[in-house]
Design a protein around this nucleic acid. Structure first.
Length: 478
RNA sequence: CGAGGUGUAGCGCAGUUGGUAGCGCGCUUGGUUCGGGACCAAGAGGCCAUGGGUUCGAAUCCCGUCACUUCGACCA
C-alpha cells in the first residue's frame, strides 16, 4: 500500500541517500527482510524486475553462443580448497554445512559463494579434446556470502545472479571472451537499464580471488558514489591447473585450458533504484518495469468509465504492453501517488471528460508531465512513449554522469572532486602505494580505464614519472 | 569486528515527577464520494524486545542479554 508518511519522508532524496534507498525498496514492496539477518525476501514486484533483466540478458547470452546449465549448491570443502588464492579470498564469508540427515558429515560442505570450483571439477571430466572447446556455459543461481553488513540488493547474505564460465583452447580467445562479456554488460546496462557505465580493470589488490585479471562495470549513483554493477574475470590457466582441466590439442600435446568467468547479480536492481529514483520513489526504465502502463479509471461510478478503461487496458495488453488496470476502491489521487512511488513509466487516466473527447490523459513517470492522447491508435502511441521514456532516461543519466566526472591532476584536486560528489579521472602509475593512499585519504577505489591516453606525464598521487602511466577512475564506492 | 542510535498495535510514533496504554496512518463493516493522497458512522487489534533487580506498584528507574539499524573496516 502507498504510504503517505513515506512520501513525506523521502521528500528530500539528498539528505540521507542510503536511508532513502532502504525506505524505497521496503515501501515499494520490492523486498522484505528475511528472518535471518542479511537475507532478503524478494517480493513479486521486485522479482518481476529481476525476471525482465534475466530475459533480456539471457537472450544476449544465447545470441553469443552461451548455454545455460546448473550445478549443485553444496560443494565439498576439499574441492573448494584446491585453488589457494580462491580459498583465501572466500574463506571468511562461506557458510559451512556440518550436519545433514541428523548426522555429522564426514566432510563438511560449503554453500557456494560462487561456482568456479564445482564447475571446474566437472570441466576436468568433460574435456578431452580441442574439439570439445570452447565450452561456454552460464548458470542462473543463488549464492551465499556471509557479509558483515548488508543492504537489500546491494549486499545480502544470499543473492541471485548469473555466472558465466567459459573455457578455451587458446589464451587470446579466453581474454577476448572476458572483454566481450564486459562490453555485453556495458551495452545491456545502456540499452535495457538506461544506465551509462564505465568499464575498467580492477587493481591487483581488488581483483577476484584466483583471477589473473578482473574487469568491472561501474555505474554512478545519484549521490555521486559508484556501484560495481558487473564483473568479468580472466583466469588464465590458474584454475585449469588447480583442477586439472586438460585437453589433447591438434599437435597431440596435453594442454591446460584458458578460462573466463563473469557475472551480474540482483544488485542491478539496486543500481536502477539509485541511478534513476527521485523524490516520489522509484523510476523504472520501461524495459525492466514489471508494469509498464497502469490504467486508472476516474469517477469510476459513472456509466461506461470502467468499461472504457478495461477496453483500453485490453487493447494495450494485446499489443504486448505490460499493463495493469487499477479498479480498486480508492481515490484517483491516491492511486496516482502509489504507482508513481512504484515507478510505473506511464499512467493513463480514463474519465468522463476524456471519453467524451475520445482521448485519455497520460503522465510519464520520468518527467511527471501530463498530457492527452487520442484513444484511436493508443497502443502505438503508448509503445512510442515507452521507447521515448527509455531513451530519455538514458540521456538524463548520461548527462548527469558526464557532469559529475572531472579530471584531477593531483591529490588536492582529487579530494575536492570527490567531496563534490563526483568521479575523478586521474593519471596513475599503477603503484599499489598510491592506490592505498587513495583509499586511506579519500576512502576511494580505482579502476584502470581501458583505451584512454594519460593526460599528464606524472602520477597524480606520487608525482613520479613512469613509462606505464594509465588513466584511472577514482570514486567512492558502495 | 569498532562507534552511535532504536526496540510500545501491521507501519510511523507519543507516553510528564513510577499509578496498569494512547495518537496518526493502515485494516474490517456499512454508506456517501472520485480529474492529485476524500468523508461520515461503527468496529477489530498490544506479555510495552527479553532476563533479572529496586518498589505497595515499572513501558517509565538500575544491571545484563538479544534483535534491528546507521556510520566505519571487508566484499558483488
Amino acid at each position: 500500500m502507498a504510504d503517505k508518511q513515506f512520501v513525506k519522508e523521502i521528500a528530500d532524496i539528498n539528505v540521507d541517500f542510503p536511508q532513502w534507498y532502504t525506505d524505497v525498496v521496503l515501501k515499494t514492496q520490492l523486498v522484505d527482510y528475511g528472518p535471518i539477518k542479511g537475507t532478503m525476501v524478494i517480493r513479486p514486484y521486485g522479482y518481476a524486475i529481476w525476471e525482465n533483466i534475466q530475459k533480456e540478458l539471457d537472450a544476449r547470452f544465447k545470441a553469443t553462443g552461451h548455454q545455460n546449465a546448473y550445478f549443485p549448491m553444496l560443494i565439498p570443502q576439499s574441492l573448494l580448497n584446491k585453488e589457494a588464492e580462491h580459498v583465501e579470498g572466500f574463506a571468511p564469508e562461506v557458510a559451512v554445512v556440518n550436519v545433514a540427515g541428523g548426522e555429522k558429515l564426514a566432510e563438511p560442505c560449503v554453500i557456494r559463494p560462487t561456482s568456479e570450483t564445482i564447475i571446474c571439477s566437472m570441466y576436468s571430466k568433460w574435456i578431452n579434446s580441442y574439439r570439445d572447446l570452447p565450452l561456454k556455459l552460464n548458470q542462473w543461481a543463488n549464492v551465499v556470502r556471509w557479509e558483515k553488513t548488508t543492504r537489500p540488493f546491494l549486499r545480502t547474505s544470499e543473492f541471485l545472479w548469473q555466472e558465466g564460465h567459459t573455457i578455451h583452447a587458446i589464451r587470446e580467445e579466453s581474454l577476448a571472451e572476458t572483454l566481450d562479456m564486459l562490453h555485453l554488460y556495458h551495452d545491456f546496462a545502456r540499452d535495457v537499464l538506461a544506465m551509462p557505465t564505465f568499464i575498467g580493470q580492477k587493481s591487483e589488490k581488488e581483483k577476484f580471488a584466483g583471477a589473473e585479471a578482473t574487469y568491472g562495470m561501474e555505474a554512478m549513483m545519484l549521490d555521486g558514489k559508484s556501484l560495481q554493477a558487473g564483473t568479468t574475470h580472466h583466469f588464465g590457466q590458474k584454475f585449469s591447473k588447480a583442477y586439472d582441466i586438460q585437453f589433447l590439442d591438434k599437435d597431440s600435446k596435453h594442454k591446460y585450458v584458458w578460462q573466463s568467468s563473469w557475472g551480474v547479480s540482483t544488485r542491478l536492481i539496486g543500481a536502477i533504484i539509485m541511478a534513476h529514483g527521485d523524490q516520489r520513489g522509484l523510476v523504472l526504465p520501461p524495459k525492466v518495469a514489471p508494469i509498464q502502463t497502469v490504467v486508472i479509471p476516474v469517477a469510476a461510478h459513472k456509466a461506461g468509465v470502467i468499461e472504457k478503461a478495461a477496453e483500453i487496458a485490453e487493447v494495450l495488453k494485446s499489443c504486448g504492453i505490460r499493463v495493469e488496470l487499477d479498479v480498486r476502491d480508492q481515490s484517483p489521487g491516491w492511486k496516482f501517488n502509489e504507482w508513481e512511488m512504484k515507478g510505473v513509466p506511464v499512467r493513463i487516466e480514463v474519465g468522463p471528460r476524456d471519453i467524451e473527447q475520445g482521448v485519455v490523459t497520460f503522465s510519464r513517470r520520468d518527467t511527471c508531465e501530463k498530457a492527452t492522447m487520442p484513444i484511436n491508435g493508443i497502443a502505438k502511441s503508448v509503445a512510442v512513449l515507452l521507447d521515448d521514456i527509455q531513451t530519455k532516461m538514458y540521456e538524463k543519466s548520461l548527462a548527469f554522469r558526464d557532469s559529475h566526472v572531472k579530471l584531477a591532476h593531483n591529490m588536492d584536486e582529487l579530494g575536492k572532486v570527490l567531496d563534490d560528489k563526483c568521479f575523478a579521472k586521474v593519471v596513475w602509475d599503477k603503484n599499489p602505494a598510491c592506490e592505498a593512499l587513495f583509499k586511506e585519504k579519500f576512502q576511494a577505489t580505482v579502476r584502470v580505464m581501458l583505451d584512454e591516453k594519460p593526460f599528464q606525464n606524472v602520477c597524480a598521487c606520487c608525482g613520479h614519472k613512469s613509462d606505464d602511466l594509465v588513466v584511472a577512475l577514482v570514486a567512492r564506492a558502495y
